[in-house]
Design a protein around this nucleic acid. Structure first.
Lengths: 252, 252
DNA sequence: TCGTTTTTGCTTATTTATGATTGTATTACG
DNA sequence: CGTAATACAATCATAAATAAGCAAAAACGA
């Protein structure tokens, strides 16, 4: 078996399982650990995978597929449900803004409208959309915030001011009646606010854990929002309060 | 049996088995190893297969897209060498622009100056730099060009005009004395030109295969360039011509 | 026919792929 | 928090595969 064939096979294995172990690969190919390590090193240089202690993971899985643990802890299934509802709001030919965030990332995956224009400040969302056909993708630019992999700051806001889109899909870290939408980072809050100003309709995607949470930086009060998309796990009483306040609630 | 017939037969074998060994082919055709190697070398140049140590594998099964990853593997070592030289030009505290491209991607990997600011229009470069410490990363924004994974267009140029950096590192698809720097896409050419205007020093990273090549869209003539970084594989005579023209050449 | 070009095989020095070994780094666990 | 277990990089030796140069054979054209 040639090196090139091993590479192919490793790529295939990564597609199936998202990760491979050095020890398994030595058995599969019947070669030494040195050889496998060299293979992985080579493949990492060629951007074919990401090495880890003990083996390697596929690049896409690293960025987009939440690991097993993450899925358990961070309400992944809620986010997928919310994203599917949000995706239905996007019609063929729409232009939309998608904010960075884990829930909005799911929205990007779920999008299936034809011929749409998407503006985003998230590198991960751009990478997801990159593989879809029939779509114009515009990135806002800006300073890269490393922990959210999003572009924020003045540059980002300047770009956003060039556009008026049909719909804006925002993520948030906290949402209450009194303080509205909040997030831990001021710069990010300002970017989100600019996004709201660039859209006709503004939707907030929020899993149940965000309700009642207040963070440092206020994005905007609820009056500017057209609807909050969440799941029916949120207590009915809380949702009613929001609706009485004039905010539309869409549950999945 | 004619050479062409051997070629055909090898292609057939590759379709069946996905890989062929030099040793098997010598038996099948009853010729020497030298002959088989020459055949494979020829066929690789004609993009009929991919050589490996010991034989060859078929292209189709390997990678369905000869786009980005494929480009990366061709002349990869050249690119790494060039990138290392370029990386040395970056000093602590510098602000630089890095253009999109496979060679400049290697530069991003090789960067090791402290406390620098990097402006780029490449998602892949941003992703590489994302893991490094001590670095501010600014993305230009713009429309996503799918085959180069870069941001181009008006938005990109507007962003770039906000900055004056110490050094600009550009990729190119072709470089000649007469036509200067050229690339196949007009929009991308304009973005590159804007980058040049935003920098004090402009360096072009070019592997040897780009010399003498002219593409559709002219980026800029050579007068605007401070130096071309390449390898010593380029014929001395050609490099001399460039130097006589007033362009500094840095080889690795 | 003769000189030229192409194709081929052989030889040798070089490169590549691999496994083993050793000391070091990272992770897991009590 | 410290220690054992595991994984790692770096280095070396070796065998296989390769590139490059040369010479012979075959094909070709005038």
């Amino acid at each position: 078996m040639f090196i090139e064939e091993r590479y192919q096979k490793i790529v295939e294995l990564l597609k199936e399982k998202n990760s491979v172990r050095v020890s398994d690969l030595t058995e599969i190919f019947d070669v030494s650990e040195s050889t496998i390590r060299r293979d992985l090193q080579d493949m990492e240089e060629k951007n074919m995978l990401k090495r880890t202690h003990g083996g390697a993971v596929s690049l896409s899985s690293r960025n987009f597929e939440p690991s097993f643990k993450e899925k358990e802890t961070s309400r992944h299934s809620d986010k997928v449900r919310i994203a599917k509802v949000a995706a239905k709001l996007v019609g063929d030919g729409d232009s939309i803004i998608i904010d960075s965030g884990t829930t909005t990332l799911e929205l990007a995956k779920a999008l299936n409208a034809k011929n749409i224009t998407v503006i985003t400040n998230s590198i991960d969302i751009a990478t997801i959309l990159w593989e879809k056909e029939d779509m114009e993708i515009i990135l806002t630019g800006g300073t890269l915030r490393k922990n959210t992999r999003s572009m924020v700051g003045q540059l980002s806001e300047n770009s956003l001011r060039n556009f008026k889109v049909d719909k804006v899909f925002l993520g948030t870290n906290g949402i209450t009646l009194k303080d509205g939408l909040t997030t831990p980072n001021l710069t990010e809050a300002i970017t989100k606010r600019t996004m709201m100003e660039s859209g006709d309709k503004v939707y907030v995607l929020s899993d149940p854990s965000k309700f009642g949470v207040v963070n440092f930086a206020v994005i905007e009060n609820l009056k500017q929002i057209d609807a909050i998309i969440t799941t029916d796990e949120v207590e009915k009483q809380i949702l009613d309060e929001f609706q009485n306040f004039g905010v539309r609630i869409i549950t999945s």
